[in-house]
Each structure stands twice: as C-alpha cells, then as structure tokens.
Amino acid sequence: MARIAALVGRLRRPFAFAAAPQAPRRRSRFARAVGRWGFAALLFGLLAATAGAQSYPKLHVVALAQRADRATVEPGGVFHVTIHVKVAQRRERIDELILGSFENCEIISNETVHTAAPDGTDFVERLTVQALAPGSATISPAYIDAIDSALGKPMRFSSNAIRVEVSGAPPLAGFFETFEATARRLLLALAIVASVFAALFVLVVLFVRRRRRPATPPPPIVTVSPPAVSVAVAPSDRLARSLEAYRSERSPAALADLRAVLFAAAGAAVGATLVDAMRALGPREPNLRRAMLAAENAAFGPTAERAGAGDDLIAAVQAYAREQAAKQGAWTR
C-alpha cells in the first residue's frame, strides 16, 4: 500500500527531481521520469488503438462499389446513386457502411435491400440525390472499417468516387422549354387524329356515293401486259411446292423448308420446335401432327434411317394435303 502511495506521489510530481540537490542523481531521476511518462503514454496509446480495433466487426467485404444512373444532370435535377456491398457473412444490416461526402448535391431519400446469397449477403443501397448548383457534384468513396475475417487485420474497404456534371438551365428555366415541347407533341397528336378522322370521313362518303350511283355499263376491255409484281402464294401452294422440291431432291435444305412450311401451317413462329408447333396446333388436324412428327424423324433421325423416314414424310404430307384439298376444294395436285 505504501509503495502504491509512493508511486502515485511520483506520478503527481513528475518534475520533483528539480528540487533534488545532487546533479548526477538529478539526471538519473530525469531519465527515469521521462521513461515512466513515455511508457505510460505508449501503453495508453496501445490500449486505445486495441480498443478501437476491437470495436470493429469481423467482416469480409467482397465488393463495394457505387455508381450513378446519370452522368449529367441539370441543377435541381434528381439522380440515383446505387451502392452495392457484398460481404461474405450472413448479415441482416450493414450499419458499418459510412457514406462519402456529398458535394454540390444532397440526399433526398434512401432505401436498402439485402439478399442472402449462397456465398454471403448482397446489400444494395439506393439513394435519391438532388443536384444543386451548376458545376459538378462529387460523391467521395463510401467505406467500411472492419476487421477482415479473411486476414484477421483491421482494414478500410473503400468504394470508388462518383462525379456527376451539373449543367444546363435550372428546372424553372427549362419549364418553358418543356411546356413548348409538350404543346408541340400535343398539336402533332391532334393533327394525326384529325387526319385519321378526315380519311375515315372521305372513305365513308365515297362508300355512300358508290352505293347511291346507278349501275354503269362495264368499262371497255383494254388489253395490257400484266405488271411484273410478286403474287402472294397460298399456303396450300407453298406446301405443294415444298413437297415437290423435297420429292425431287431429298436435300437437307428442301427438308428444312418443308418442315418450316408444316410448322407455319400449325401456327408456329420461325425458330420454333416441334413441341411449340404441336402446342400452337392443339388437338386439331391429326394429319398435320403426323406430318410434323414425320418431318422431325426425317430431320433429326439416324442417318441410316433417313430414306425411310423421308418416304414416311412424303406420305404423311400427301395425306394432309388431300385432307386440305377436300376441305377447300382447291388442291391442284
């Protein structure tokens, strides 16, 4: 107890050596006092540093990035900043995320979404930010201070900085431009609607006048050479042509064409598979279903069996064509 009291007394009077009478002893006391105070300061510093580091959470930050959805914004305009944090741990919150400073802009609102992934947790912080004066808005890097669970050392994980140009007229000046553009669009829309109504009106008038007109003699027959225009091919004609092409030349191209015609007849789009075509067709047209199945066999079946599969295909397509001809009475072959 007495030793402790003496030690406390020394600490209270660190420069008490100044009153000591002997010079060599004075140097020794001076050195000891300096050493004592230095040691105490070092100990205090170490304790403070350790306590600070120990207050950090253990985290392994896999990704920390921020980005803005606009590179340029007008003064007073709003843009969004998305901060993505990925940590290797399962976390519900990421309170350790410190946002950077927002210069020439201010945060209006924020929302955080977190998603648990197999390899950790993803946090997406979405900030709605309003730009202030013309110039540039800068957002310094966001950071997380933590003890890296992978390395076991205190680390600062920082993101990138963001710079958004604030240029153009402020919203009040742009208001008139916006108003003008809106009015222009409105006028254009009105003009289009008026044109459509006018066209309809003309058609109705023509139709009524045509019905009221008395029967006129047929115009004289004038023989002219037929114009060189493409004629739309009826589906049955297309099927007949494709079948004929495949029958004359059993090539992969002819087979692909015939298969495409069958799929189109079933109502399937280009690039569809057999299941797509069957689904589009539904339960009707059993002969078309058989023809499509035969086409699948001929197209993708074993090479050695393709001759037989081709014969089956021709027979199935002919059966389907006959059925169609019976329905329409227009089959030419």
Partner: peptide
Amino acid sequence: RRFVTPDDVRD
C-alpha cells in the same frame, strides 16, 4: 426415341 430432338435440348 432413337434420336435427340431440339426439344430435348431446350427442355
């Protein structure tokens, strides 16, 4: 079936 169709692959 003795052969693979595009439907097998896509499914």
